[in-house]
């Protein structure tokens, strides 16, 4: 069963002379009950794609369905059954928490009581503040309220556009835990994020950059596709070390990666590299590293360039 199908979607903005193509023929499917991540930096086309799927924008070419309905022809049906949380938490800042929730419930022809079980887990965390105006909530609380509002009509597909942008690491963790519990309730979730580390929390991800999909797979599948040897190196002098790594012929790419530098190897060549670093006078620690999504993303970007 597929919840979302996307077929060669092309989206352009602007007229005649200054046309910007935001999506260059994007295709993928999302299965029912899947937690699907759209991972890419700002300006990659994530929001455009979400807007096409939520019937807010018309694509120039291609077709797409949500819950079996065409995004152009059957937009009314889609609007009844999807939940959407745009990038900026779209709440009425001058309404209280409870007023916001009641309002969204009514607009979607339901009541808070009817679907309380679905949002209870999330809403109960902000319920103590139900008479506070939404504008006075912290970022994490706004995020929870916006999610409650997007869920109040028990949507079959939930679109979350960068729900964790600008939110601190703790709130981000909590948010992903909430998404997992929602998924367990059978809701299909499409979530976009610029944070590569969040990819591993999805069932499947699409890596997107400049309107192109770089890769679609499970997080494990994407990591397996990396296909090159990756080494982690650290030394007292990190900046010269990076320079030295880049200069070595066996190294395809080297870049800082947290505490270590990652060196993507062209072939094997670990011993050679160690000998070279010793010769250059570095006191270093070198070990094999498992690539993560960020390594893969950079690898795919490099290949694409």
């Amino acid at each position: 069963m597929t919840a979302v199908t996307v077929n060669n979607i092309i989206k352009r903005y602007g007229k005649k002379k200054s046309v910007v193509t935001a999506l260059h023929g994007i295709s993928f499917d999302v299965k029912k009950g899947e937690l699907f991540g759209l991972i890419g930096p700002d300006g990659a086309g994530k929001t455009s794609l979400f807007r096409v799927l939520t019937t807010l924008l018309l694509a120039e070419e291609g077709s797409a369905t949500v819950d079996g309905f065409d995004v152009v022809k059957d937009y009314k049906e889609i609007r009844k059954r999807v939940g959407y949380m745009p990038g900026r938490f779209s709440l009425y800042q001058d309404l209280t928490v409870k007023e916001n929730l009641d309002f969204f419930a009514t607009i979607f022809n339901t009541t808070v009581e009817e679907n309380y079980d679905l949002i209870k887990d999330i809403y109960s965390q902000i319920e103590p503040f139900k008479d506070r105006r939404a504008g006075k909530l912290s970022g994490g609380m706004k995020q929870k309220l916006a999610l409650s509002c997007a869920l109040i009509h028990r949507p079959s597909v939930l679109f979350l556009d960068e729900p964790t942008t600008g939110v601190d690491a703790v709130s981000r963790k909590e948010f992903w835990e909430m998404l997992k519990r929602l998924k367990a309730q059978g809701i299909t979730i499409l979530v976009s994020t610029p944070y590569m580390d969040e990819a591993s929390l999805c069932d499947r991800v699409a890596l997107i950059q400049s309107g192109h999909i770089l890769s679609i797979d499970t997080p494990q599948g994407i990591v397996q596709q990396f296909g090159k040897k990756l080494l982690a190196v650290k030394a007292g002098q990190m900046l010269p070390l990076l320079q030295a790594l880049k200069e070595h012929p066996a190294v395809a790419d080297a870049y800082p990666f947290g505490e270590y530098h990652h060196a993507v190897m062209k072939g094997a060549g670990r011993q050679e590299l160690e000998a070279y670093l010793v010769k250059r006078g570095f006191e270093f620690e070198l070990k094999d590293a498992e690539p993560d999504i960020e390594d893969c993303f950079m690898g795919l970007m490099r290949d694409g360039r």
Binding site: L56, Y84, M85, G87, S90, L91, Y92
Partner: peptide
């Protein structure tokens, strides 16, 4: 401007 129109449009209203 606030982005709430987006959510309103993606509603059955």
């Amino acid at each position: 401007e606030m982005g709430t129109m987006e959510v309103m449009l993606v509603s059955p209203m």
